[in-house]
Write a protein that binds this DNA or RNA. Structure first.
Lengths: 107, 107
DNA sequence: AAGTCATATAACCATTTGGTTATAAATAAA
DNA sequence: TTTATTTATAACCAAATGGTTATATGACTT
């Protein structure tokens, strides 16, 4: 999949991403950083795995999570293009105006 | 309020924002750009109004929507700081390592 | 005054989200 | 071989999401 919009919609998941940007962490280490239960956090981790922004690997009884930095970067670039364009469309506004797509509309 | 993450989580709302980045539109003009029903689109518009990213104004029997560009820019900047930091934390990774916050952990 | 067009709102539905508690299973430590 | 720790999963819950249809309200048109 990879829906970065879904991934970052939740503050807990944003914090997880921030933590994993600095280091790998086991699930229990991550749980310690939050006040929610282990199954609740596990669900957030599953969503981030599902969206391919983090990877999990087994190490004995531990489950270690790491950021998939390359894909995260790619997906974030796309977001920036889509959302960033909303901002620099003052130019397109002018273009629209000049083309006389008639702003002073009939309604 | 203003939770830009919630606002942009849905593709329909992202398209609305893109459309409003170029022009003001009435509700019915917007409805024409989608395949979903008028009440469904109205709900998306209400969420964007709630999050203070667009404004609605009455003009006769029409309801005209416009992008609140200033607030959108502010909120997007914050997003960029939060999400962007996830990426350039290779530096912080190094810092963490040098400070010996011990990566080669005991687990 | 009647009809039409734009918007608002209510009622409903299925799915997703974000959480909980309880418990099982697997691995490591005593 | 118990015991403790870590993770996984099931069952449940309330609220939010994203959609629908039906209908009411309001404002221009004719």
């Amino acid at each position: 999949m990879t829906d970065i919009y879904r991934a970052i919609a939740d503050p807990t998941r944003r914090k997880i991403l921030t933590l994993l940007s600095r280091n790998e962490y086991t699930q229990s280490e991550l749980v310690d950083q939050f006040t929610i239960s282990q199954p609740a956090l596990k669900k957030h981790l599953s969503i981030l795995v599902e969206e391919d922004l983090i990877a999990e690997r087994k190490d004995g009884r531990y489950c270690v999570y790491r950021l998939k930095r390359d894909n995260f970067k790619d997906q974030y670039k796309k977001l920036q293009q889509e959302i960033g364009s909303v901002l620099d469309n003052k130019l397109k506004k002018l273009k629209t105006y000049l083309e006389g797509e008639s702003d002073g509309e009939s309604h």
